[in-house]
């Protein structure tokens, strides 16, 4: 069990990094990586939402979607609805968290506020839920996987944003300025993370 959790942790953070190995969540990776401060805010929101959504979706999958039951003499299995259900549940969950946060923790709401709605339908969040289902993980393992995947996302985002802050001051050839050099940097960063493959 502990061995398995260790595998999940290292696998999700380094080897199968969501951004740099699986190419999920590229949109916020490029969008909010111009400053370390916003990258930190986004990372916090992603860790929060992904952990929570992995927990909830794995519970729903385990106790409702994967069960076979009989309706009017026909055996029915609703597994095929999982992506639809996951999207709706995650979006509703984020909305709920936002409402509650605004009431009970205004400072945290201020800090995460702008980023929370941004990640309601983030593919990384859905990806964590979907991949856990595919790998046949239980509720605890799914939650840990979601948490660690989000940490991996945060690691990539913070690394990338600190590189981009430095890039702002560098003399970049004109055709490569802006997003172009950002994408090249992301590519090199992804190649660096390829060095971890085979670790798990």
């Amino acid at each position: 069990m502990t061995d398995n959790i260790l595998t999940i942790t290292i696998g999700a953070i380094l080897v199968n990094n969501f951004v740099l190995a699986k190419f999920l969540g590229i949109c916020p990776f490029l969008g909010v990586s111009k400053k370390i401060k916003t990258a930190l805010g986004m990372s916090g929101a992603v860790v929060f939402v992904m952990t929570l959504s992995s927990l909830v979706t794995s519970v729903i999958y385990k106790y409702i979607l994967s069960k076979t039951f009989t309706v009017a003499g026909t055996e029915i299995n609703l597994t095929f609805l999982k992506i639809l259900v996951f999207i709706v549940v995650i979006a509703a969950l984020v909305q709920l968290v936002e409402i509650i946060l605004q009431k009970f923790s205004p400072p945290l709401y201020q800090a995460l506020g702008i980023f929370l709605p941004l990640i309601t339908t983030n593919c990384a969040v859905l990806g964590a839920a979907e991949l856990s289902v595919q790998a046949g993980r239980g509720v605890l393992e799914s939650t840990i996987f979601g948490f660690c995947s989000a940490l991996g996302f945060a690691l990539a985002l913070i690394l990338f944003s600190s590189l981009r802050e430095k890039l702002d001051l560098a003399q970049v050839p004109k055709p490569l300025q802006g997003t172009a050099i950002g994408l090249i940097t992301a590519g090199i960063l992804a190649m660096v993370f390829m060095g971890f493959s085979g670790l798990v």
Binding site: V71, T74, I76, L78, L81, V85, V88, V89
Partner: peptide, 14 residues
Amino acid sequence: TIILTSLIFAALLG
């Protein structure tokens, strides 16, 4: 029955 059940399930969830 499958179509009906999934429709009802989705509506109920929503």
